[in-house]
């Protein structure tokens, strides 16, 4: 049970960490000042969530690894984030589309984790859902603004959503770890979130005059540590300072 719980918490923490790192890459590159600030604010929230989840994961594991050890001293194969979140930022629309698809999932996940019988998980979820509420609104408003905007913005955000769609299936793929943790009341079976997610996403897409892509082949593997080539570059940037100067202190 401890092993499954560790993996389960690690996945949630890694999702927040990897998306937080990606959004942080926008710092100084936002299309307008307000969005530069928004994306980095959201990044900060996500890294805060990652710190809480990774700290707790380290406690569950019981091998003395803290948040920093887990964030900076694991290799790609040991990361458990879903593939969607490691996809490169692309243009602003690609970034918004990626966040949009994830934010709607994260909101439902944390809402359900409020009822976890593990106090720590419920507490971090209660904190995180307040932040994700804002993130979800931000990304959804942009999907609507771009979709229902000019012909150019409409086509581009539609393309972004189409391109990322094959990564959405992984969010709801339950494996043994999900089943074990859910059966104990500690976590949620992600497949139970799918219907609500689809309904909520569809409502925004409709308002945005966008089409929901058809479900086709879905990518998977990130949750089990099988990643796309993109994560190596991301980790190199994120980890190189602590690896060059291990034990460095502020």
């Amino acid at each position: 049970m401890q092993k499954e719980l560790f993996e389960y918490v690690l996945r949630i923490g890694d999702n927040a960490l990897i998306l937080g790192q990606r959004l942080g890459e926008w710092c100084g590159h936002g299309p307008v000042l307000e969005e530069d600030i928004a994306l980095t604010n959201i990044s900060l929230d996500l890294i805060g969530q990652a710190r809480s989840f990774l700290t707790y994961a380290g406690e569950v594991e019981g091998l003395g690894r803290d948040e920093d050890k887990l964030a900076f001293f694991r290799d790609a194969r040991d990361f458990r984030n879903i593939l969607l979140l490691e996809q490169p930022n692309g243009d602003f629309g690609d970034t918004i589309a990626r966040s949009f698809l994830y934010d709607h999932f994260a909101y439902l996940l944390f809402e359900s984790l409020l009822h976890s019988n593990v106090t720590n998980i419920a507490a971090i979820a209660a904190k995180s859902i307040k932040e994700v509420t804002y993130h979800r609104r931000h990304s959804s408003e942009w999907v609507i603004r771009l979709g229902d905007g000019t012909a150019e913005s409409h086509d581009r955000i539609q393309t972004s959503i189409n391109n990322l769609w094959e990564y959405t299936g992984e969010m709801f793929n339950a494996d043994t770890i999900d089943h074990v943790v859910a059966s104990l009341g500690a976590g949620t079976d992600p497949s139970s979130l799918y219907a609500s997610w689809k309904k909520n996403v569809a409502a925004v897409l409709l308002e945005a005059t966008l089409e929901m892509p058809a479900d086709d082949w879905m990518q998977k593997g990130g949750k089990q540590g099988v990643h796309s080539e993109h994560i190596g570059f991301l980790l190199a940037e994120m980890q190189h300072i602590p690896r060059t100067y291990p034990d460095a202190q502020w």
């Binding site: 307000e34 969005e35 600030i37 928004a38 604010n41 959201i42 900060l44 804002y134 931000h138």
Partner: peptide, 13 residues
């Protein structure tokens, strides 16, 4: 509202 995200995490613009 100009932006939901302002100069610090707790503020909007």
């Amino acid at each position: 509202r100009i932006s939901e995200f302002g100069s610090t995490a707790c503020k909007a613009h």
